[in-house]
Design a binder for these strands. Structure first.
Lengths: 208, 208
DNA sequence: CACCTATCTGAACGGTGTCAACATGATCTT
DNA sequence: AAGATCATGTTGACACCGTTCAGATAGGTG
């Protein structure tokens, strides 16, 4: 049920301008970067006057939050795929990490926007509470890999540790300084897997 | 002849406006946050006209980079302190992590600015190459904790893994969702140490 | 039909980054 | 000492930004 169940209601003048604005914003973000993402540019891209968005979002911030929300859904889809393609549950954690970093690399501006809006309210995206959220999936994958599900505190800590570590890696994996090391290791994925290995097991209960 | 290094000689009109602008920027950043940090506001705070900064920085970006550079120095100082206060080298890694997160928490806007400017050029701050940089210090601490210094690749990976993991933790440690867990664990530092423990050893060569 | 309400437009306000033209005054040359 | 030079600072302007508000428009409801 990861369908975005939207009705085909076309409202009064434009026809679902709200969604059109979010799409336009993501298009600008991908094509021109975060610096070019002004509310006026979004309105322009959607073919509408600069004031029109204010009938659908109280703020520029609120629009950006909607864009970010879509990003979290994309990310949890990517995690879902990585998990589904892992034959052995013990590989799932690393594969999720690889998929996560790949998503961040393929959508750099969106990924940054996602965390910027989260940090501005010092909270995880509300999406994290849902059943199929990336966070929840990582937790499940940890259990399947052998993490004790009865010790809720430890499980939570292991999930947090995994998420933090991979997020840090995603933000820095593109640093120029790592390029020589990557090549010496024979490619990007080898480098990522090696760093993930150094993170440890993410839980003292999981043995290699 | 005016010397080329960072001299304390007071230039023509203002008297080291360049430094005054960086200080003003950091003051605004702490007091009002990143959103209020406009070039004009910085000039205002420094008591100078809006165009004056352009004789010292080619861009707003270049000013922010200078501010960020100062931040990296503060951070490496914090790491130095954490290291110096660790009696046993085996505690140093965790203590550095705690000190790092504390710095990020005490200077949230500055910390974000530091990484924003780094990521914009997909590179670590030049400071990272210097002898007393935080990155270099972590590497030394890993060696002192038992990491094999002769295997350069593994050492590099361990350093990267440590840095990424702690950075991720620093960015998320304030999330509201973690509050109950923190309190259940009896405090902030206990929570941080627990997450750090879950990161593993950062190097397969280090045994607990 | 008339009315109502959600939606969109146009113009305006204060703020921003940046630039070109001009003013100033410390230093260098003579 | 006097004048030239050039780094430094100011003023004013431009285009763009987020946001607001009065008014135009048009779908839904009586």
């Amino acid at each position: 049920m990861r369908e975005t169940g939207n009705a085909q209601v076309r409202p009064y003048h434009h026809g679902d301008l709200s969604r059109a604005l979010v799409d336009a914003a993501r298009r600008i973000l991908e094509a021109e970067g975060a610096q070019a993402l002004s509310l006026r540019a979004v309105a322009r891209e959607a073919g509408v006057s600069p004031a029109a968005p204010y009938h659908h979002f109280k703020d520029k911030t609120e629009l950006l939050e909607a864009v970010a929300h879509g990003g979290w859904e994309m990310l949890s889809d990517a995690i879902f795929e990585a998990r589904r393609n892992s034959a052995d549950p013990r590989d799932a954690i690393a594969n999720i990490g690889i998929g996560y970093v790949r998503f961040a690399r393929e959508n750099p501006a969106l990924y940054r926007l996602m965390y910027d809006t989260s940090r501005d309210r010092t909270a995880m995206p509300e999406h994290a509470k849902e059943e199929d959220s990336g966070y929840h999936q990582v937790q499940c994958a940890l259990v399947e890999a052998g993490c004790d599900p009865t010790d809720a505190g430890e499980l939570e800590l292991a999930t947090i540790a995994s998420w933090c570590a991979v997020h840090g890696l995603a933000e820095m994996a593109n640093f120029k300084e790592f390029q020589p090391l990557k090549e010496a290791m024979g490619g990007d994925e080898a480098f990522l897997r090696a760093v993930l290995r150094h993170f440890g097991t993410f839980s003292p209960r999981i043995k290699h």
